[in-house]
Write a protein that binds this DNA or RNA. Sequence first.
DNA 1: GGCGCTATTTATAAGTC
DNA 2: TGACTTATAAATAGCGC
Lengths: 170, 170
Amino acid sequence: MSRNKVKLAWIANDSARRTTFKKRKKGLMKKVSELSTLCGVEACAIIYGPYDQKVPDVWPSPSDAHRVLTRFKSMPEMEQSKKMMNQEAFLRQRIAKTKEQLKKQQRENREFEITKLMNRTLVDISGRILQDVHTDELKDLAFMIEEKMNGIQERIDSLKSSTGCRDGSR
Amino acid sequence: MSRNKVKLAWIANDSARRTTFKKRKKGLMKKVSELSTLCGVEACAIIYGPYDQKVPDVWPSPSDAHRVLTRFKSMPEMEQSKKMMNQEAFLRQRIAKTKEQLKKQQRENREFEITKLMNRTLVDISGRILQDVHTDELKDLAFMIEEKMNGIQERIDSLKSSTGCRDGSR
DNA sequence: GGCGCTATTTATAAGTC
DNA sequence: TGACTTATAAATAGCGC
């Protein structure tokens, strides 16, 4: 598009092609971002490099995310939420929300299950203790408890050794 | 870009925004197709219209999509999946994976924490029982246990009433 | 709202270092 | 290879119909 008009065909020369690729890719990304900003739409470009690069170039990129945010901030609230419901931003937000929700549920669940189990255990044990405390009973109870503890210890050990990661938050 | 330099910001005027959108979208699509042709790379643009249209404008066009698909099909499996691992599909998969991971961790965590707590509780209680079982001790123990149970029941109740959703898997 | 028409701004192919 | 420069091709904002 400049010193010469260019034929719309595959550029045979390798270095020339690379150069053009780089330049045009940059220009294209800019255009995409501009369109997105000016018109308040979600837009995305995906370009696979000529060399078998693993990751294609895409817009929005992390660095451009800032601009997206700026645009969002300059929109009326209603528009914002409407526009929010789109593509990558939406998906990313979805991921974050899902993670948060699951963590919360996880925390609550844990508490819930723990209290439930502790409750059962304590009811069971206290029932035994309060009803009739005979030596024989106590021996049985002690035996049962030790049995359970052994089982529990084994589970803990196996969990400790087989699981590297315990929780995202730690 | 022409009669006036344009500010890179959301165009408030509705019709002006639509016009610009249409023009720039066309230009963008052209650029994408040129880049693809000139440099022999796969490129793709996805643009969601300003009106909440279900289907975004995309390049390559359906007719060009055929070529892309052909190319994918002619690639070794490994390369395919590598390239496939992109864009939306990638993100969606990402979400699924994250969810799965978190659920797994959640499950393991719960078990771990439960066993840990049960262990502590049982150690505490059995220790008391096994050491010296005197009536006074037992009374104290029974009292303590009842106290704890009350507290626990309260927590359970509050959890039950305040939390609608317990777990994604249920 | 869409189409065509410029005046200008942008993008960019070559060239230079 | 990459960063800059420059002449020129393209894209396009604002108008008028």
